[in-house]
Design a protein around this nucleic acid. Structure first.
Length: 169
DNA sequence: TTAGTGATATCC
DNA sequence: GATATCACTAAA
């Protein structure tokens, strides 16, 4: 079952764990469906979260964070990796959830590479786009928290937030 | 451990 | 216009 707007419309600290175990799907023009179960997510929460792109104020790149929940935010990292997020929470409240790994393809760059998600998907909607969506296959799963990765610049207060969720196996 | 890669923000 | 930085990955 495809997840609708009401699923995404909540705080990133709730949405991130809820997304773990769900299936990310991208249907290609030839009908092929690329699917991958989400194994890791991270929450980035507002301007006060020093690890969140919104912490440095609104810029052309991060302005997507201020959009409504369910919108896709993709940006290029280290010149070669597309990192995919979904916006959460209230509109005009800059927060989102990073898809940090899939069950098969670990790492945020490898996940988008497999799913063929690049920056052209920036600003599209996981709720309304006909070829990209998230499914709940009803399979129960559990996850545990961890520290977020790769945010050394944010300072210890924010590094120590348990805002990463990892699928148990 | 380190090179590769390029958009972005921040300084001239 | 120049430069430093970066929510990473693969190879060694």
């Amino acid at each position: 079952m495809r997840l609708g707007a009401e699923f995404f419309h909540r705080d990133c600290l709730e949405l991130a764990p809820a997304l773990v175990g769900k299936i990310l799907v991208h249907r290609l023009p030839d009908g092929t469906e690329l699917r991958e179960r989400i194994a890791e997510t991270e929450a980035y929460r507002g301007v006060e979260d020093k690890a969140c792109h919104a912490a440095k104020g609104r810029t052309p790149r991060n302005s997507i964070l201020w959009r409504e929940s369910g919108i896709i935010y993709v940006y290029l990292c280290y010149g070669m990796h597309n990192l995919m997020n979904v916006i959460s929470g209230e509109k005009e409240q800059p927060q989102g959830v990073l898809f940090r790994a899939g069950e098969v393809h670990n790492g945020p760059g490898k996940l988008t590479s497999y799913l063929q998600i690049d920056r052209s998907f920036n600003g599209l909607s996981l709720v309304e786009h006909p070829e990209v969506w998230i499914e709940d296959d009803g399979k129960p799963c559990t996850c545990h928290t961890a520290f977020r990765v790769g945010i050394g610049y944010a300072g210890t207060e924010w590094i120590q937030k348990p805002w990463r969720w990892v699928l148990d196996r």
